[in-house]
Design a protein around this nucleic acid. Structure first.
Length: 531
DNA sequence: GTTTAAACACGGC
DNA sequence: CTCAGACATATTCGG
DNA sequence: CCGAATATGTCTGAGGCCGTGTTTAAAC
């Protein structure tokens, strides 16, 4: 645990990416198995302990600290693990020389121990650790490390050890589990490259960059293909002799929630890996994203759900066919392979993603702006010769979403942020005007926290401090005097806000210092325009 | 004791 | 998903 | 031609709303 703690501490204080890579490489070559494997898993976010959660840590901290003091400290520090690590006063008996637990010990214990016993063990560990190890232990339990290095950087460090490309590590990663012994053996030249063979493993998908500040006139329309950008869930369908899977783009296996799709894959009996968009399709019509969400996290869908919200797939791409890896082939060739595969197998509930024909990008821009129908959020542009590469390379694929909508809203409340924003009021709840019994009042429609620069954050923070009318713990109510232009992708009805509406992807587009609060938008106008 | 509601956690966008 | 910022690397510019 | 300035690419952290499932607290 001490070595891991030292690593985290150094990472957190090193801004340089190259230095972080060096630190990681050094740690990985120095630390023993299985510790280093669990450290890697922690950085990659693949550790989760159902018996130990942030709420439990907060409860433990409360045993030793005045709740009020703890709340203020947490508010100030902005990070639960750091707060508890600092505030914890170890209770030690005399002549007792406590030994901090090893990383592998911690992981094994937390995985196996009955939930009721976990607080006692964690308390004992916290007493035995110094501040730095305590911080590492707590970070391990809270999950998100946020120490300036995440999964990708850790994998890059491993790749450098083996003198291979980071994508090679990414490729073998998903067939493996903590503590990743085979992976370390490979990068140290002591073992073969791990091979998933015919196992139904996840392949890192290719993602698109947003099309911003890109000069389309420099593009040759003949070299580009266009498709609709569907508002569903990007999935990878895997069918091998060893089994079938439905993966999300972050490798979550969601097959249980979509047995209808899984059954189709089984019936196909074709050894393929497909890329597509999962949607709820009712008689050929794509249902709103909310319907898909209802099915997404269910352990198993009810019979009525399977009937009323049937899942369907828009096929984008084919990665493997009969075990052959097609990813290095150009998009156009893969598309031909996809079409011929589709024609041969005729899979039910799947349709090919339509290739939109266009003469020039002006035509396409018109299509994009008019694309406000259900289920479509814009266009995808794909270069005809682009191979399928993992990650989000700049150049081959672009997502060209519709222009966001905007509304002028009034700041009502502000809240302190976390982490590096813990000393700023960085989240703003804003509202629109509503007239009740001749009285014009503000009702909240959402919160936003991004879209402003650090400079603007300082202005907003000061404005909040100078115009506070009430305090509720970390939240401040402010005078009705500041208008924000809020950009958002869609509006929907919601129970979350008093106004009954909510925004999808809200962000601050502009601070309207010039606009009096009274001239901000009305809820009624908003609903008429966007719902 | 059992049912109901609220709060938290998670992963989708 | 969004966005801004930090760092690293690639490219261009000025001497 | 080389070093400095600028542009571009990649990665990171901060956090929004939604629905489901789980756990905890409150009400019956």
């Amino acid at each position: 645990m001490i070595e891991f703690a030292t690593l985290l501490e150094r990472l957190a204080f090193t801004p340089s990416r190259n230095m972080k890579l060096t630190l990681l490489r050094e740690y990985f070559s120095m630390a023993p198995d299985p510790d280093r494997g669990y450290a890697l898993a922690a950085m990659a976010g693949s550790l989760s302990f159902s018996a130990a959660k942030p709420a439990m840590l907060r409860a433990l901290a409360m045993e030793r600290t005045d709740p009020e003091l703890f709340a203020w400290s947490y508010d100030y520090v902005g990070d639960l693990a750091e707060t508890v690590a600092l505030i914890w006063k170890p209770e030690r008996k005399e002549h007792d020389t406590p030994v901090a637990p090893g990383l592998a010990d911690v992981v094994h214990t937390l995985e196996r121990l009955p939930k009721a016993d976990v607080p006692n063990v964690v308390r004992k560990w916290l007493d035995a650790c110094d501040t730095s190890s305590r911080y590492a232990l707590l970070k391990l339990i809270t999950g998100s490390l946020r120490v300036g290095a995440s999964a990708r950087l850790a994998k890059t460090a491993l790749a450098e050890m083996a003198s291979v490309a980071p994508d090679d590590v990414e490729e073998v990663w998903h067939g493996l589990e903590a503590p990743y012994k085979e992976l370390f053996a490979w990068v140290e030249g002591k073992g073969p490259k791990p091979d998933a063979k015919d196992a139904p493993v996840f392949r890192p998908p290719m993602l698109a960059q947003p099309l911003e500040n890109v000069d389309l006139t420099a593009f040759d329309p003949a070299e580009w293909r266009a498709e609709w950008k569907w508002d569903g869930i990007r999935v990878q369908l895997v069918s091998t002799p060893q089994g079938e899977r439905v993966y999300t783009r972050t490798a979550e296996d969601i097959g249980k929630a979509f047995p209808d799709i899984l059954a189709i894959l089984q019936d196909l009996g074709s050894h393929v890996v497909l890329d597509g968009e999962l949607l709820v399709v009712q008689e050929g019509v794509v249902a709103p994203f909310a319907d898909l969400q209802k099915r997404l996290n269910r352990k198993s869908p009810t019979a009525s759900m399977l009937r009323d919200m049937p899942a369907g797939i828009r096929l984008y791409d084919i990665l493997f066919e009969d075990g052959e890896d097609l990813r290095s082939l150009p998009f156009d060739i893969r598309r031909q392979r996809l079409e011929s595969w589709y024609a041969r197998l005729k899979p039910p509930r799947m349709v090919l993603s339509e290739l939109i024909s266009f003469r020039n990008f002006e035509d396409l821009a018109t299509l994009r702006e008019n694309a406000r129908s259900e289920g479509i959020e814009g266009l995808m542009l794909k270069k005809a010769d682009s191979p399928y590469v993992p990650g989000r390379p700049r150049g081959p694929w672009w997502k060209w979403k519709r222009e966001p909508l905007t509304v002028d809203a009034v700041v009502m409340y502000a809240q302190r942020g976390h982490g590096k924003r813990s000393s700023f009021y960085s989240d703003y709840t804003f509202g629109l005007w509503r007239t009740v019994e001749e009285k014009r009042e503000l009702v909240p429609i959402g919160k936003a926290y991004s879209g402003f620069t650090d400079e603007e954050l300082k202005f907003l923070d000061k404005w909040v401090r100078d115009h506070t009318t009430k305090r509720f713990g970390p939240v401040r109510e402010v005078a009705q005097g500041l208008v924000l232009e809020i950009a958002f992708d869609a509006a929907q009805y919601s129970k979350r806000h008093k106004s009954g509406v909510a925004l999808r992807f809200p962000r601050v587009a502009r601070i309207r210092r010039d606009k009096p609060a009274q001239e901000a938008d009305d809820l009624e106008t908003f609903i008429r325009a966007f719902l």
